[in-house]
Structure formats: C-alpha cells, structure tokens
Simulated scan of single mutants.
Amino acid sequence: MTVTELPKIELHLHHEGAAPPAFIRQLAHEKRVDLSGIFKPDGSYDFRGFAHFLEVYEAACEVLKSPEDFRRLTLAILEESAANGVVYSETFLSPDFCGGGDLHAWRDYLNAIQDAADEAERKLGITLRGVVTCVRHFGPEQAKASARCAAETAGDWITGFGMGGNEGVGRQGDFAWAFDCAREAGLRLTTHAGEFGGPDSVREAVRELGVERIGHGVRAIEDPDLVHELADRGVTLEVCPGSNVVLGLYDDFASHPIAKLRDAGVKVSVSTDDPPFFHTTMRREYEMLHKAFGWQAEDFAAINETALSAAFCDEETRARVKKRLEKT
C-alpha cells in the first residue's frame, strides 16, 4: 500500500470551500445565476491572492441558499473525501452562510447537512462532525450570533467552535465573548491563527481564547519560544501545506515548516483547507509530504493518531474511527 492509499483523518475543511467547482456551476445554472466571473476557462476557481480568494469564496456561496442545497453539497464533499481515503472529517460550518445567523433557519440547514452525513456514513464509511465557525471579518457582534447558534445545537454532531476569515481584521481577543459562550456549552475550541498573522496571533489565540487547536499555526516556527510553548501545552496544529504554498506563504512543500514543527514536538495534523480552490486532495497532500520529507507509512500513521486524539468527537466515535485506521 502506498502512502496515498492510507486511511486519513482531516480536521480542517471549510464546507463551502470544499464545494467542487462543477457542483457550484451546476447549481448556478439551475438557479440562472451568472457566476462565470469566478471560474477560469478550465472550470476551476479563479482568484489572485488571499483577499480575492475570500471574495470568490463568498461569491460561490451566493447559490447556496437552501437546506437542500447544503444537503447536496455535503454529499458531494463527502464523496470526494471518501474517494481520497478520508475516514473521519470535521467541517467548518458558518451560520452566516446557513440562514444568516438565524437560529431557526440554522437548525433547518443543520438537519439537512446531518441527513447527508448520515447517508454518506452508511454508504461510504466516512464519519463527519461539525465545527461551527464565526467569520472574523464580519466582526465580534456577528460572531456572538454564530456562537449562540453553536451553543443551541451543541451535542454529538456539532462538537466544536472556531473562527475563520481574514486574520488582518481585529484581534483574537476581540472575540472572547463568542468563545466563552461556546466553551460554556461544552464545545471544543479552535481558531485560525499563524497563517497570515504572525506568531503573536498564535500566542494570543492560545492564551486569550483558550483554544486547544490552531487552524494553520505554521508561522509559530518564527518564534522558538512559542514553538516550545505549543509543544508544552499540547496544542494541535491543523496544518494545510498545499493551501499555504498556493497562497504564497512558502515557495514549495520542501520549504514548509510542518516537518520542523513536528520534530520540535508540536502536534501536527494534515488537511486540505479549501481543496478545489488550492488544487489539492488529501491524497496529494500525502504524496507531496512523502516527496518533500521522505515520510513513510509510519509517519502518516503517527500524524493520524495525533489527529484522532485531537478530534472533536465522543469516545465511541473515536474508537470506531480507530478501527478504520487499523485496517491497513
């Protein structure tokens, strides 16, 4: 078995960002919405830089307007993930895109997404859990509405809360109320930091928001003291190497710091972030890491073990997924 064929765990996946371009084009066609401006001639998403990426991302969301749209989207995402050997995934879901932050509408969207996830688990053997995210550039007040939606639907399926969006807007600490609300509801916590924000953004996320995972976090490598702190605290980084390379943080996989972070004792996992936007899959991430660092099956097994330990799921689910990982 090659490393690309190994069963995989993915902790950092944006739901709308995982939408296959063909799916969005089909939905736009059905709804007679012109989205031609966000696609290249080959049909892939067209963006230049992170700010433009966010604009294209939100434009694609314009055709995702109903629970049924999200049910279909969830099936499309999970079919692609399962085809790449993913046996457990956590997806970032924003109430801002699922009902505009209204709790009643959010429940309808969530029911549709869960229904699709249950169908995919029966048919494809992949388990999905939801992490509600607020959107940083929508501001702290809107984040409170997302946190309330998360708190009201926390349970066996909605198991975490986090924050995505533009790291250049505000500070992590500005969103403390939303994270406190989610924590009090029993949700596990993560947030994007250390991607376009420097090491201080990671330090602030850990110390002020009390998160146990960091989305990306790779720029922590620029501060040796922070690297030691992350290792000592046992914080898990949701690393997305392909995304970081495409968005220009690093020139290529060989210059990516994931191996140095891991060698320093920091817990790392591997994910795709927004795979069709960044022309990647979990198979490709494994292949490129194998080529760049010589990682073998035992290295990826250790990374998956780390990811499973950090997963925001109950122990029964963890045990079930562990059995899938062992079938190699």
Score class of each variant (00 low, 15 high):
Ala176Gly: 01
Thr133Pro: 00
Ala182His: 06
Leu226Pro: 13
Phe138Cys: 02
Ile24Asp: 00
Ala19Phe: 02
Cys181Gly: 01
Glu167Ala: 05
Asp314Ser: 12
Leu230Met: 02
Tyr45Pro: 10
Ala112Gly: 03
Ala205Glu: 12
Pro224Glu: 14
Ala297Thr: 14
Glu184Gln: 12
Phe175Lys: 08
Glu141Ser: 14
Leu187Ile: 10
Gly85Ala: 11
Phe312Tyr: 15
Glu238Ala: 10
Ala112Cys: 02
Gly242Val: 03
Gly101Cys: 09
Pro20Ser: 03
Glu10Phe: 02
Pro224Ala: 10
Ala76Pro: 08
Ser94Arg: 06
Thr328Lys: 11
Leu261His: 04
Ala18Phe: 03
Ser201Tyr: 06
Gln296Asp: 12
Gly164Arg: 05
Ala82Glu: 09
Thr4Ile: 14
Gly100Ile: 07
Gly43Cys: 08
Asn244Arg: 06
Val218Trp: 01
Ser255His: 13
Val235Ala: 04
Asp314Leu: 06
Leu226Tyr: 07
Arg284His: 15
Asp174Arg: 08
Ser255Phe: 05
Gly100Leu: 10
Tyr45Trp: 10
Glu204Met: 02
Ile258Ser: 04
His14Leu: 05
Thr272Ile: 03
Gly198His: 06
Arg32Leu: 11
His14Trp: 05
Ala220Trp: 00
Trp295Asp: 11
Ile38Ala: 02
Asp251Ile: 00
Val270His: 10
Glu10Val: 13
Glu90Asn: 06
Leu103Glu: 13
Gly165Trp: 03
Arg148Asp: 09
Thr133Ser: 07
Arg148Leu: 14
Gly217Leu: 08
Phe300Pro: 00
Lys123Gln: 15
Val321Ala: 01
Asp108Ile: 00
Leu27His: 00
Phe312His: 14
His192Trp: 04
Glu305Arg: 15
Ala105Asp: 12
Ala19Asp: 03
Pro21Thr: 05
Ala150Tyr: 05
Lys267Thr: 04
Arg71Met: 00
Arg219Tyr: 01
Ala205Tyr: 14
Glu152Gly: 02
Ala311Asp: 11
Leu237Tyr: 07
Asp252Thr: 03
Val246Ser: 05
Arg72Lys: 12
Pro21Leu: 04
Leu308Trp: 08
Val211Lys: 09
Asn84Gln: 14
Ala193Cys: 07
Asp34Asn: 15
Cys240His: 00
Phe161Tyr: 15
Leu73Asn: 03
Phe138His: 11
Gly186Asp: 11
Gly164Cys: 13
Val321Arg: 03
Leu13Lys: 00
Glu212Cys: 09
Val245Ser: 06
Ile24Ser: 01
Leu103Asn: 09
Leu78Trp: 13
Lys327Thr: 07
Leu11Gln: 00
Ala231Phe: 00
His52Gln: 10
Glu184Arg: 14
His279Tyr: 06
Val86Thr: 09
Glu287Leu: 13
Lys323Thr: 10
Phe277Ile: 05
Leu187Met: 08
Thr4Arg: 12
Leu189Gly: 12
Arg171Trp: 04
Ala117Asn: 05
Asp314Trp: 01
Ala297Tyr: 02
Asp115Leu: 14
Glu229Pro: 11
Phe312Arg: 03
Gln26Cys: 04
Leu11Val: 01
Ala116Ile: 10
Gly100Phe: 11
Phe138Trp: 07
Met288Pro: 00
Gly160Arg: 07
Trp106Lys: 03
Asp42Ala: 09
Asp263Phe: 01
Arg320His: 09
Ser81Glu: 15
Ala19Ser: 14
His256Ser: 06
Gly217Cys: 09
Val321Cys: 02
Ile258Met: 09
